[in-house]
């Protein structure tokens, strides 16, 4: 189960509206490499993960990603607060406004709705962990693409924090992959799927 702690993981205090920037940052809410997809990916994968350290890691990173989703939504909320119809019309935010007013809805920067196809969950520990490591790198690239366009330090500061977390998560997933491989037969890691096949761990070998 989860409990809500009434604070963000890292503070977000934005004093200047910028609906154009909000329209781009929203990709890290509902886009292909966004925080919502990250959280759902890890929290879906963990059930069949046979190694307890890695199942714990998927749970804890999946939980942290929920906090990151909250930070991204806070940034978008603060960037679009108190907009006038004229400001909306003048910015590129008008198409989003027609469907959602200034409410939060998970979509990519290009307007594509959040898609469960991005919650890759294959039921194979090696496959899933490589997916997760790639996902963290893709999210890092997205944050870097955003940071190249952002001049406002109040917006850039929390995004820099989130970018750094992608690097830490990549490192931890790499350690998780090492734990999985240490449990398998080093002559052929791919001989079995340890989440499905029986007696495939090194300790089970005759």
């Amino acid at each position: 189960m989860w409990q809500y702690e009434k604070r963000l993981q890292y503070p977000v205090n934005i004093t200047r509206c910028d609906p154009d920037m909000a329209r781009l940052i929203i990709s890290q809410f509902g886009g292909p490499d966004g925080e919502l997809s990250a959280s759902m990916r890890y929290l879906s994968q963990r059930y069949v993960m046979p190694y307890k350290e890695v199942a714990g890691l998927l749970t804890d990173i999946g939980t942290e990603e929920l906090g990151h989703m909250e930070m991204i939504c806070s940034i978008i909320y603060q960037l679009t607060k108190d907009l006038s119809p004229d400001e909306i019309k003048a910015s590129g935010f008008d198409a989003y406004y027609i469907d959602h007013t200034t409410g939060l809805w998970p979509q990519a920067a290009g307007g594509i709705p959040n898609n469960a196809c991005e919650y890759q969950s294959k039921g194979d520990p090696i496959t899933d962990l490589f997916e997760d490591m790639a996902a963290e790198q893709k999210a890092r690239s997205t944050y870097e693409n955003l940071l190249r366009l952002i001049k406002d330090q109040e917006v850039a500061d929390p995004l820099r924090f989130l970018r750094k977390r992608e690097i830490v998560h990549f490192q931890r997933f790499g350690e998780g992959l090492r734990i999985v491989q240490d449990n398998l037969n080093s002559k052929n890691f791919y001989a079995f799927n340890p989440a499905f096949d029986k007696n495939c761990d090194k300790k089970d070998a005759k």
Partner: peptide
């Protein structure tokens, strides 16, 4: 309170009344 489990009669109002975290006051 920061968690619902720490809500009691004296502080319920502050649980719902305090600015929410996304409002950016701290």
């Amino acid at each position: 309170p920061l968690w619902a489990k720490d809500v009691h009669n004296d502080n319920y109002f502050s649980w719902v009344n305090r600015p929410m975290p996304w409002e950016g006051d701290v």
